[in-house]
């Protein structure tokens, strides 16, 4: 029970929910490609897929947990730890959507991850003041 209440544990669950949400939204966004313009900028058609809605529910759940985490953890630390989504989401895309991650894409992902860790303290401060 104590483990479940730990903000670190909750942050991990929140990150996993975001990864699941993105995988479901990707699935919903690419469903029923047949008659729909494949280059449509605004994708209303995705709403006809149940996967999109599951993604939305997961996103909302992750947000609720995130708000809860913020009551028990400084924003700076929460921002730094939440950088883990930049690993979890691409790994989920590789695992569940069978996306190919080239060396260059992997490098890009890694740079973004390190960058978000470095910028976490400043962006948390900025978020509080803006």
């Amino acid at each position: 029970m104590r483990a479940i209440l730990s903000p670190y544990f909750q942050l991990g669950i929140s990150a996993i929910l975001i990864s699941a949400a993105e995988v479901f939204m990707k699935t919903g966004a690419t469903a029923d490609l047949g008659e729909i313009d494949a280059v449509a900028v605004i994708n209303f058609a995705a709403l006809s897929s149940i996967a999109t809605w599951i993604g939305v529910v997961f996103y909302v759940l992750s947000f609720v947990i995130w708000l809860h985490v913020l009551r028990h953890m400084p924003l700076t630390q929460a921002y730094a730890l939440s950088s883990i989504v930049h690993i979890l989401v691409p790994v989920s895309a590789w695992l569940f959507l069978h996306e190919t991650i080239s060396i260059r894409r992997g490098m890009g992902i890694l740079l973004v991850l390190i960058g978000t860790l470095l910028v976490a303290a400043s962006s948390a401060n900025a978020e509080e003041k803006l």
């Binding site: 990707k26 490609l33 494949a38 449509a40 994708n43 989401v89 895309a93 959507l97 996306e99 991650i101």
Partner: peptide, 12 residues
Amino acid sequence: LWLGLLRSWDLS
């Protein structure tokens, strides 16, 4: 817009 991007491009 995000759903529009996801339609054409890889999530990763």
